[in-house]
Amino acid sequence: MIVTNSIKKILALFAIVFFSFTATSQSLSVGLIDYPPHINFDEEISKSPLYQYINKMLTTQGFTVTFIKLPRERASVELLKGRIDILMPIPLNNENIKTLTSPIFHSVPGLCFKKKNFIPILSAIHRLDALTIGVPDNLSLVQALTDSSASLVYLKGENATNRGMEMTQRGRFDAFYHPSPVTVYHRKNPLYKELACSYFHGYSTPIYIAVTDTLSSDMLTLINSAYQKALKEQSYEYYFASSK
């Protein structure tokens, strides 16, 4: 009887050690999309704040993490096919993509102008009335812009945003509607030095961390709980603002 109990105890201990080991030695592949300044492919990736935040969150939980830089167009396909476990950062515009429970940050759309024509406060929408503003045709526009009497010129195609920015820089548009000017209006970007952007505050879009459908529910629960714990300790947005 005593021997049986001892064997049971040893087996239980072995099970705990075994499951702890498997839980903490899981490896994850995380796809990254260029999204400056949060993920910036133009510099060493370990300097990107979102990489740092998520890497710390996952490695603290014992995960072995491999980060893979991906082009925006291919990234979602890789996730949907299960070739990567996690993809970030990504706006939720594909309902087939599963995400962690809450957004990692919010992106605010805005207008980019030639600096000499800069309009800093976009709630003064009457100032847009006489302007010709380029807009990518695949984006939904904020009400403040559609309410204005600005003349909107729609640009088609995958590369509409970059073309629109270049056209604004060349003076073809008075302004260009950008879904997330923070990604282009920063000192490290050499492309649009003549432009400055202002924001439609109050019209933000949540940006998420996506996960593959093939991830087991146990694994998803584990990642979600680590994510919520990290956000509770310090939100990514505050980490981003205060860590520079």
Partner: peptide, 14 residues
């Protein structure tokens, strides 16, 4: 207080 810091940082480039 945290939100104030975040807002000022959002405007940093400008």
């Amino acid at each position: 207080l945290q939100t104030m810091v975040e807002v000022m940082d959002d405007n940093k480039e400008l």
